[in-house]
């Protein structure tokens, strides 16, 4: 069951509002941080959609995100297409890839699923890395941001771009929450909880999982479009599997299977990263310790723990994927 509880609405609204305030009242660097958080949060909720609700721990979401970014970059920087068309194409490519990966992998479970997604993600990464046409290791620059000047928005300005990214995050969250509350989401959760039972009810569970993976990929692709516009540059770094791993850390830290948790997780982790990086360049050690501690503490994550406390600590064992 997914419910958009008042606590969730309040949490997501408060996080986005706080980030907006930080962007408005902070300087250039805080705006850059907010953009980074918003983009990673979009990727993180797309991963939580399949991992937390469908039990599909994907290690190729970074690659899907990168596919969106590269498609957008090729369309705008190489082929001079308008931004809206490029974004549409990027989301379509990401969705199609997600559908294909989902269709092929959704019959596998557990570690095999993880490995299969890893394989497909790395395939995209290596192919991109080796492709001269896409600039290989160096990537591609010259990506343009959306031109929203007709409606008075100047995305070249870092504050306006930050607010725009937050708006996209809010929209993506609302969309995914809507899908989860609808019959599609209920069925997905049902498949995760008891696949045999859903199959006995006559459902083609793998098709349903593949469709969920495609929806999630569409959102991840949209995140990629923003990432390409943010730095106006794309490189294979966007697709490497450790990025998928880091996004998984965000999901776990925030609270897997809560949808709002990953938004909080992205904010907390990125802020900490910038804070800690001023003292030491061993930021990854910190991430590792946080990840291990979160799992050992029961794996509920920040928001999961909040919900758990609100619910009086009564239910707990239910959420181990």
């Amino acid at each position: 069951m997914f419910e958009q509880t008042p606590v969730k609405t309040a949490a997501v609204a408060a996080t986005i509002a706080a980030l907006a305030a930080y962007a408005i009242f902070g300087g250039y660097f805080s705006r850059e941080i907010v953009i980074e958080i918003a983009i990673l949060a979009i990727l993180a909720i797309s991963l939580d959609f399949v991992a937390g609700f469908g039990g599909m721990i994907s290690l190729c979401h970074g690659a899907i995100f990168g596919l969106g970014a590269y498609t957008f970059a090729v369309m705008t920087a190489m082929w001079d297409q308008p931004g809206a068309l490029a974004a549409l194409a990027a989301i379509l490519v990401a969705t199609a890839f997600g559908l294909a990966v989902g269709a092929v992998t959704s019959k596998t479970t557990g570690i095999f699923f993880i490995m299969a997604t890893l394989a497909f993600g790395q395939m995209v990464y290596v192919a991109t890395f080796e492709s001269q046409w896409l600039g290989g290791d160096d990537g591609m620059s010259g990506v343009a941001r959306f031109d929203l000047s007709p409606i008075g928005i100047e995305l070249g300005d870092s504050l306006q771009f930050a607010l725009f990214c937050l708006a996209v995050l809010g929209t993506a969250y609302a969309l995914l929450a809507m899908v989860l509350r609808a019959g599609f989401g209920q069925t997905l959760i049902g498949v995760h909880t008891n696949e045999d039972r859903m199959r006995a009810l006559g459902l083609s569970t793998w098709r349903h999982k593949a469709a969920a993976f495609a929806i999630s990929s569409a959102v991840a692709g949209a995140g990629g479009v923003l990432a390409a516009q943010h730095t106006q540059f794309v490189s294979p770094e966007l697709m490497v599997w450790t990025l998928s791993g880091e996004v998984l850390v965000i999901v776990i830290l925030g609270g897997i299977g809560t949808l709002v948790g990953p938004v909080i997780g992205a904010a907390v982790l990125i802020l900490l990263k910038h804070e800690i990086s001023t003292y030491t360049d061993h930021w990854h050690m910190f991430i590792g310790v946080v990840l291990i501690a979160t799992v050992l503490a029961g794996g509920r994550g920040i928001f999961g723990q909040i919900e758990h406390l609100i619910a009086g600590g009564g239910r707990g064992a239910g959420r181990d994927a």
Partner: peptide, 21 residues
């Protein structure tokens, strides 16, 4: 007995820690 996902996460965390050490 924590399931493959938690094992993947904890040992993934270990990679980060060991690399930095």
């Amino acid at each position: 007995r924590a399931g493959p996902m938690n094992q993947v996460l904890v040992t993934f965390g270990l990679i980060f820690v060991i690399v930095d050490i």
